[in-house]
Design a protein around this nucleic acid. Structure first.
Length: 555
RNA sequence: GCGCCUGUAGCUCAGUUGGACAGAGCAACGGACUUCUAAUCCGUGGGUCGCAGGUUCGAAUCCUGCCAGGCGCGCCA
């Protein structure tokens, strides 16, 4: 049910009719809103059209409102009351009978209710996590993972064709650094004391890796090592770490369609190709022996090197080529989810995207850092130094569903404080259980009904008028607004709106449950109520699925 | 110094793209389980929306300037 749209159309024709009749004169119809007022007494939906139209029409707002109301041609039985209020708002009260229509609609659509064709024909890539395979995923990656996965689910639900991608940075000297770090640990296990490599990865996971390496019966590398040996060790370490990353993500309920390796860009000659393209367009120049991209042409604060004077291409060059490839693959929209510490990088990449002629097709979402607390004390997190809390630890301590829900209860651009002890402590009172409990509770009720041989089949519209309690109407209204909420969340790339909706829906459900029985002596009343709560359960499951959180049958 | 993000109840956070008396969870206090799952419900207390101006019929939301916190400013990745 797209109530806002229906009403908006009605209002638009009312204003056009008034104009045709000469009651209102204005040039262009100004933008106006049709929204649910915060105040319950102000109706189900309200519009500010009379307010914004007052000036162009040169009439007092309330007068404009009167004209609009007189021209309104709503279908029979849809509106129970229309009133002009305050400075000139028009408040619409929807008739109960109209809300009932949502029950058979959800019943018929099932898990398709909430889906839409909003993004039909739109190909979207969501690239997220993309952590370098130099260490285990930490809690910050977890936030990006939860967001990216939920966003991809959301876009898929709204009809977009979605590809989830993980970009693996496996070019450059980090492989060598990784190799040196592993080499150090191997020698150490052999009882040697050598100097720890500069910039080496100190995390304990490197020790474990070295131990595994030897346990597999591999010989310890020679001393001193060849560079080839170090690179080989680096590859070994990188592969092993990537395998763990994949495992962690899998256990976090996150899946990817593509694991794209940076090496592939070079194998396909895409970096050179992107250079040629930029050169043709006149956005490359040479200076100080290096090759530069004219990022300043597009508002970046300085020009950027793409090929260093030593001949090596930069990380940025890879990224330009990578994004060229994305657009060549036909994506209408590419979403990159990055940690906020990379924000300074956004203008140069957007500049490159513009230079490639794809302006507006890249959207970068910056996920602010997760500052981790343990019993109120901040925990510093660096991969290199080796002090961090891993995603694995969070998974083990607070669980997948609770962790995902916590991440998805915040806007990405706000910093998040995650207190491990608190998250564990509160795990039984965590909001995620509140929503899941609502789902499980309904499952239980429906099981009871089945056990008593009460049929919860096709909803019988004749019984709906039995649903006249305020709690029942509140639920119906929430359900009716769900598809439009999903669309708004998708348009704004904000999965957290789903989280808040679910909490609200669960709240109404619990309240209803505690005040009234669903299975009663009155069979017709029972059937009407079961029809309602059954579709509540359907929508809870749909929303939880978008978030990637389980919808349990029992708890 | 410059740039990006943030500043809303004791704490953690929402706030429908500028609307009508500012919301939730946790924490505090007081109540509700012989009844479909009490991981629940009902009630009470708690906010100059960082500060100061401006735009507007109307501002937590937009603009400007301060203040505070976080992050970033390589021919690193």
């Amino acid at each position: 049910m797209r109530l806002k749209k229906i009403l908006r159309d009605l209002i638009t024709s009312a204003v056009e009719n008034a104009r045709t009749a000469g009651e209102l004169t204005f040039d262009a119809l100004p933008a106006f809103e049709v929204e649910a007022p915060k105040q319950a007494g102000h109706g189900d939906l309200a519009t500010n059209l009379a307010l914004v139209l007052a000036k162009p029409a040169k009439l007092p707002p309330r007068k404009v409102a009167e004209i609009l109301v007189s021209r309104l041609a709503a279908p029979e039985g849809m509106l129970s009351k229309v009133e002009i209020a305050g400075p000139g708002f028009i408040n619409f009260f929807i008739a109960d009978a109209f809300w009932y229509l949502v029950i058979p609609e959800i019943h018929a659509l099932g898990q398709a209710y909430g889906n839409s064709g909003l993004g039909a024909g739109q190909k979207v890539q969501v690239e997220f996590v993309s952590a370098n395979p130099t260490g285990p995923l930490h809690i910050g990656h977890g936030r990006g993972a939860a967001l990216g996965d939920a966003l991809a689910n959301l876009l898929a639900a709204t009809g977009h064709e979605v590809v989830r991608e993980y970009y693996i940075n496996d070019v450059g000297n980090q492989i060598l650094t990784l190799g040196k770090s592993l080499y150090f640990r191997l020698r150490e296990l052999k009882g040697e004391v050598i100097e720890f490599p500069e910039d080496g990865y100190q995390g304990g996971y490197m020790k474990d890796l070295a131990k595994d390496y030897l346990d597999q019966g591999r010989p310890a590398p020679p001393s001193p090592p060849h560079e080839d040996t170090l690179i080989e060790l680096g590859r070994y370490a990188g592969d092993a770490i990537l395998a763990e990353i994949k495992q962690d993500l899998n256990d976090f309920g996150v899946r990817f369609d593509e694991w794209f390796s940076e090496t592939e860009l070079y194998r396909q000659g895409l970096v050179e190709k992107s250079f040629e393209l930029l050169k043709e367009r006149g956005f490359l120049f040479e200076a100080d022996g290096a090759l530069w991209f004219k990022a300043t042409e597009f508002g970046d604060e300085k020009d950027r090197v793409v090929r260093r004077s030593n001949g090596a291409t930069t990380y940025f060059a890879s990224d330009v080529a990578y994004h060229l490839l994305k657009f060549q693959q036909g994506f209408d929209l590419v979403v990159d989810i990055w940690g906020a510490d990379h924000h300074g990088y956004v203008p140069r990449l957007q500049a490159a995207v513009q230079a490639l002629g794809c302006e507006g097709r890249l959207q970068v979402i910056l996920v602010q850092l997760v500052s981790l607390l343990r019993q109120g004390e901040p925990v510093a997190m660096t991969t290199r130094g080796g002090t961090f809390v891993t995603l694995r630890e969070v998974l083990d301590e607070v669980g997948k569903d609770a962790a995902r829900f916590i991440f998805l209860t915040r806007r990405p651009d706000a910093q998040l404080e995650f207190d491990l002890e608190l998250a564990k402590q509160q795990s039984s009172e965590n909001p995620v259980y509140y929503v899941q409990y609502a789902h499980a509770r309904l499952a239980s009720v429906l099981r009871q009904a089945a056990a008593q041989a009460i049929a919860v089949g096709e909803p019988d519209s004749r019984l709906f008028p039995r649903l006249s309690l305020p709690e029942e109407l509140a639920l119906l209204k929430l359900l009716a607004g769900y598809p439009e909420l999903v669309e708004a969340a998708a348009r704004n790339l904000e999965p957290h709106r789903i989280t808040y909706f679910l909490t609200e829906l669960a709240s109404q459900l619990h309240s209803y449950y505690n005040k009234h029985r669903f299975i009663t002596e009155d069979l017709e009343l029972t059937q009407a109520r079961l029809a309602l709560v059954s579709v509540v359960q359907t929508v809870l499951a749909h929303g939880l699925k978008i978030l990637g959180v389980a919808a349990p049958e029992t708890m």
